[in-house]
């Protein structure tokens, strides 16, 4: 669409929702996709370069900021920067302590990484929708989606990682038998062994759906909220420039709440899932 100076609204929206895709095209080989059709033809063997680049950049920013604070940390009177970082860390630690009662080296850092990283990725939503794509278009890069959490790959990547950790700790703490027992021997149970065996498929169906639903809902909730928010920003951007502020300002202010809330929900649910994996029922 960069070639088209006056896109129709549909074209404009589609352009904004298209990632920068690097993949193996059946005809062109390894290349950047120049349209959504080309991107779709690449199938699974494709990378959303923009999402990954922004996500890794923001993750590196998180690591750099917090490492800087951790290197200069003092148990005496903290400076302003240390105070700011400590506030976040203490908030996360408080949430972890409230919900997760086991002992784990992982859950705290995991929750902190998720909270700050998801927050930073969501924060990109407040950057004006046209600013970065225009800048990239100026240097010849056609597509640019700067909010990684509006890419379902990114949110599901996070939630599947959490899901694998959940399975891993379930099996590690309860043993393979305990994990399978939780899947098959409840909620319906009986003292009679024959009825107990009869209940196994029903239980497996119920618990299996519940288990699979966790990572899907975790990832799609974040994706849905941010995607919808971004879409509304794009729609507002279709208004005449002198009217945009009447809608974009209230929506942006409301979105400040959404981006923090979604980061918090993702972190909280991760802690809850990890806590469930560590506890016997």
């Amino acid at each position: 669409m960069a070639s088209n100076p006056n896109p129709t609204p549909t074209e404009y929206i589609q352009h904004h929702l298209q990632n920068l895709v690097l993949g193996i095209h059946p005809e062109n080989g390894l290349s950047f996709a120049h349209s959504s059709e080309e991107a779709a033809a690449m199938g699974f063997w494709a990378l959303h370069i923009d999402s990954l680049m922004w996500a890794i950049g923001l993750g590196a920013l998180f690591c750099w900021l917090f490492k800087k604070a951790a290197d200069n940390v003092t148990s005496g009177v903290p400076g302003k920067f240390q105070n700011f970082i400590e506030t976040i860390v203490e908030f996360v630690q408080g949430s972890v302590k409230e919900t997760f009662h086991g002992k784990s080296e992982l859950v705290g850092p995991l929750a902190l990484t998720i909270f700050v990283w998801v927050f930073l990725m969501n924060l990109m939503d407040l950057v004006p929708v046209d600013l970065v794509p225009r800048l990239f278009a100026a240097i010849g890069i056609e597509y640019q989606k700067i909010v990684p959490t509006t890419d379902v790959n990114m949110t599901l990547g996070l939630s599947f990682s959490v899901f694998f950790l959940m399975i891993y700790y379930s099996i590690k703490i309860k043993g393979i038998g305990g994990f399978l027992g939780e899947l098959t021997l409840q909620p319906f149970s009986s003292a009679n062994p024959i009825i107990k065996v009869l209940f196994i498929p029903i239980n497996l169906l119920l618990e299996g759906v519940g288990l699979i639903a966790k990572p899907i809902s975790l990832g799609l909730r974040l994706f849905g909220n941010l995607y919808a928010g971004e879409l509304i920003f794009i729609l507002i951007a279709l208004l005449p420039w002198y009217l945009q502020w009447t809608l974009s300002v209230p929506w942006a202010i409301f979105h400040i709440l959404v981006i923090v809330l979604q980061a918090f929900i993702f972190m909280m649910l991760t802690i809850v899932y990890m806590s469930m994996a560590h506890e016997h029922h």
């Binding site: 990114m154 599901l156 990547g157």
Partner: peptide, 14 residues
């Protein structure tokens, strides 16, 4: 909804 290798990249960076 086009799932692709990005998912894996995100998991590794995570």
């Amino acid at each position: 909804m086009n799932l692709n290798l990005t998912l894996l990249g995100q998991m590794i960076s995570f």
